[in-house]
Structures are given as structure tokens and as C-alpha cells.
């Protein structure tokens, strides 16, 4: 795997906040490298700095010090607008609470990132959105509105939205946090499928169970990496899903 292209490289990443006149050190020097095709879980309890790290990796925030290179480009030196364009072209976000536009159809939600990319024509936009929705198994629900769908379906739409711009990395923030166990495993299966098809995924969670399904696990505590282990034989989420008792009522 080491011969694969470097997607993310962070070195001595630090991030400090001033809260109520007091300096809070959320990240105290984090370094790691993520290569193409990895499925990384970043774990940690609340307060460990994992949300801060996710925001930095997602170009939503800039570090106080340290270096962050995404797909060969240093994010450090980017302006606000350049970071927005980077988010648009290279990153796909999946949030815990889906964050779909209300009263909007799946396909329009999925098209949204491409609307902010003027090099994509209307025709291509539609085609790519349909393909992304097919990839998450929602080809039957292209024109359902977000409020007419279950949580699992909404999260699938959100994943399709993250895929539509063909990002170099998918960042998931507690993507199964709002779902019941069964739906969680089906979403996890979807992530594993995407990984199998070569996608690079970072999955941030506080649930240690999920680490068993990823290919690599980074654990944060108090703003530092305390363990970084590869998992050559991840468990299959599909098996776990099928082993679950089906709802018969």
C-alpha cells in the first residue's frame, strides 16, 4: 500500500482556540500520512480534538501551526476562497445529521456541489448526480424530497452528494451516529463498498466498534495521536448486517 499516492500529509499540526480569554490547545502536534485507497477511522472521546482535526482536514479551518498538504498542495497558504474551491473539487463531506436541503429532491441535493463549479454543464451535472445516486443504491428515489425519506436514505443521499464531485477524499463525521444499528451497518457496508472501489475515506467516530471495519485506525487523546494501527483484515460490515436479526413486525 505504501507505493500508493500520498493524499494527506499532516506534520506537527497544532490548533489553539481562545475561549473566554483562556487558551485551549485542541491539537498539540499531530502528524500522519494517508495514502490513496485507505479507509481510516479517527477515534477519540469528546474533547480529544477529533472534530478540530476533521475541520482542518476538510479545509474548513486553518491550523495555528504545522503543515497540511492535500493532494500535493499545501492548504496552509490558501486564501478563504481557495479553500472553498478545494472543498468543492477535492473533498466530499458526510455529516452526522445529513444536512440536506429541506423540501428538495435527492437529485437536486446531489447536484448542489456541482452548481458551485461552473466548469460542469447542466447536462453533465444531471448525469453525474444520477450516477452518484446509483452508486449509493438510490436509483429508484431520484425525485423523492429529503423530508419524504428515512434517515438511512437521507444519509445515502448525503454520501452521493459527497461522491458527485469525484473527491480525492471522503470525510465522514459520525456518519452513522444518528442511525439505528441495522441502518448503521448498511451505511457502513456502503462505505466499505466505496473503499473496495478505490475511494479514500476518513471516518471520524467515538465508537470503538467501528474501527474493526476500517483498514487503519488512528486514536486521538488530548490533542495527540496515541495509536496508529493498520488493520490488514477488516471485518465485513455486510456480514454483520446480515447476521443482525431482521425486523419482522
Amino acid at each position: 500500500m505504501s507505493e500508493n499516492k500520498e493524499i494527506i500529509r499532516v506534520e506537527k499540526l497544532r490548533r489553539e482556540f481562545i475561549v473566554g480569554g483562556e487558551k485551549v490547545k485542541a491539537l498539540r502536534g499531530v502528524s500522519f500520512t494517508i495514502r490513496e485507497g485507505e479507509f481510516v477511522t479517527i477515534m477519540g472521546t469528546s474533547g480529544s480534538g477529533k472534530s478540530t482535526l476533521l475541520n482542518l482536514l476538510g479545509c474548513l479551518d486553518t491550523p495555528t501551526s504545522g503543515e497540511y498538504v492535500l493532494d500535493g498542495v499545501s492548504v496552509q497558504s490558501m486564501s478563504k476562497n481557495q479553500r472553498a474551491v478545494t472543498r468543492n473539487r477535492k473533498i466530499g463531506f458526510v455529516f452526522q445529521n445529513y444536512n440536506l436541503l429541506p423540501k428538495t429532491t435527492s437529485i437536486e441535493n446531489v447536484e448542489l456541489p456541482l452548481l458551485y463549479n461552473s466548469s460542469v454543464s447542466a447536462k453533465e451535472r444531471r448525469e453525474r448526480a444520477v450516477r452518484a445516486l446509483e452508486a449509493v443504491g438510490l436509483q429508484e428515489r431520484l425525485y423523492h424530497k429529503s423530508n419524504q425519506m428515512s434517515g438511512g436514505q437521507q444519509q445515502r443521499v448525503a454520501i452521493a452528494r459527497a461522491l458527485v464531485n469525484d473527491p480525492v477524499i471522503i470525510l465522514a463525521d459520525e456518519a452513522t451516529g444518528n442511525l439505528d444499528t441495522r441502518t448503521s451497518f448498511s451505511i457502513l457496508t456502503l462505505f466499505q463498498d466505496l473503499h473496495a472501489r478505490g475511494r479514500t475515506i476518513i471516518f471520524v467516530t467515538h465508537n470503538p466498534e467501528l474501527a474493526e471495519y476500517s483498514s487503519r485506525n488512528i486514536v486521538l487523546r488530548d490533542g495527540k495521536v496515541v495509536s496508529d494501527t493498520c488493520n490488514p483484515f477488516p471485518k465485513s460490515a455486510r456480514e454483520a448486517y446480515e447476521a443482525l436479526p431482521k425486523d419482522n413486525d
Binding site: 472553498a84 448542489l112 458551485y116
Partner: peptide
């Protein structure tokens, strides 16, 4: 505001 946050996270610039 949340909608704005979402739009920005998927790549909308402030000017957009």
C-alpha cells in the same frame, strides 16, 4: 445559517 454552513462546506465561497 445552517444551510449557509452546508453550502460553504461543499465549496460555496463567501461571495457565492
Amino acid at each position: 445559517t445552517r444551510e449557509i454552513g452546508l453550502r460553504m462546506s461543499i465549496g460555496a465561497r463567501g461571495i457565492d
